[in-house]
């Protein structure tokens, strides 16, 4: 099954080209230049990895990250930003971002991070499932 990636960036041209390249490599890509709409998609749609810009009109990438990590902690977020401030990067990682990449990023590196993020999400979901099963076994005394 192909990995589901949500791209969020206010530069529409950038979204178009990056989407096309990722789709060419077999990823299932959805893109949005509207952070509010993207947040709703991330909450409700099947998504494995979000590639997120840090600076967007209407909503800061950090705010986006905080909100989605509270709602869906298993979702993996990679920040891809031209705003190269170290403190923002540290803040993002503390909030649960898997990685922070600077624009212009090497496409191969980005693909490798998406692969890693998708694998991490799978591990987290398996762990969550195992905990649930263990909880049921314990409760019912099986």
């Amino acid at each position: 099954m192909s990995k589901k990636v949500l791209l969020v960036d206010d530069e529409k041209d950038f979204l178009d080209v990056l989407s096309e390249r990722m789709k060419g490599r077999g990823l299932d890509v959805t893109a949005s230049s509207d952070p509010g709409q993207a947040l709703e998609m991330a909450r409700t749609a099947p998504v494995d990895v979000i590639v997120l810009d840090l600076k967007m009109p209407g909503m800061d990438g950090i705010e986006f990250l905080r909100t989605i990590k509270q709602a869906r902690p298993e979702l993996q977020v990679i920040l891809l930003t031209g705003h190269a401030s170290v403190d923002k990067g540290i803040q993002a990682v503390r909030l649960g971002a898997l990685d922070v990449l600077e624009k212009p990023a090497n496409f191969g590196t980005l693909m490798e991070r998406i692969e890693r993020a998708s694998a991490k999400k799978l591990v987290l979901l398996e762990k969550h499932d195992q905990e649930k099963i263990q909880e049921i076994i314990t409760q019912r005394g099986w």
Binding site: E11, D13, F14, V17, L18, R21, G82, A84, E102, K103, P104, A105, F107
Partner: peptide, 9 residues
């Protein structure tokens, strides 16, 4: 950086 990213992609 945004323009370079566009050119790069």
């Amino acid at each position: 950086k945004n323009s370079l990213a566009m050119i790069n992609e």
